[in-house]
Amino acid sequence: MSLFSRLLSYLGLKKKEVNILVVGLDNSGKTTILNNFKKDEDKSQEIVATIGFNVESFHVNNLTFSAFDMSGQGRYRNLWEHYFKGIHAIVFVIDSSDSLRLVVAKDELDLMLKHDEIASKPNLPLLIFANKMDLRDALSSVRISQALGLESLQERPWHIQASNAITGQGLQEGIQWLTEQLINQKK
């Protein structure tokens, strides 16, 4: 048992379930990221665009994550808000190579953070994956953070993490941050 997970069990968080909401524009890699967290035998071989949502669950750091993987296509985005209730964290995924639609992503993010259900919980952690970092024209996480105006988020704990969902690079780091946040809140 790693030091970290020992710490978790000490804090009484062992086998605790956390609900997270995974959102972001279509084609940003949400489903691929979640697939990477799953056990090898549960992994899907091919990933298709999500219609509506999917529930995925996986264990990381001795926590059981139950994730609502929402569809990012325009016509489905207004459905996100139905799943805001009862979540413990938000994961927002960005396609770093899609600089053109970064403004759209910003709009969606702002809209979500302004929603009563989210705005009333300023402690709800927000993890941003700057995904597809492997692509040649990918923007750096700093640039993305600027474009999204993350600095202006005052109270809310947030973190941006560059990632490659195909190789899994950066994913552990991101989820690690999230776990720490959740534990801190427990204290």
Partner: peptide
Amino acid sequence: ENVYVVTSSLTT
């Protein structure tokens, strides 16, 4: 309304 939201879940 919007019952198609469960499409992916059901296909899975």
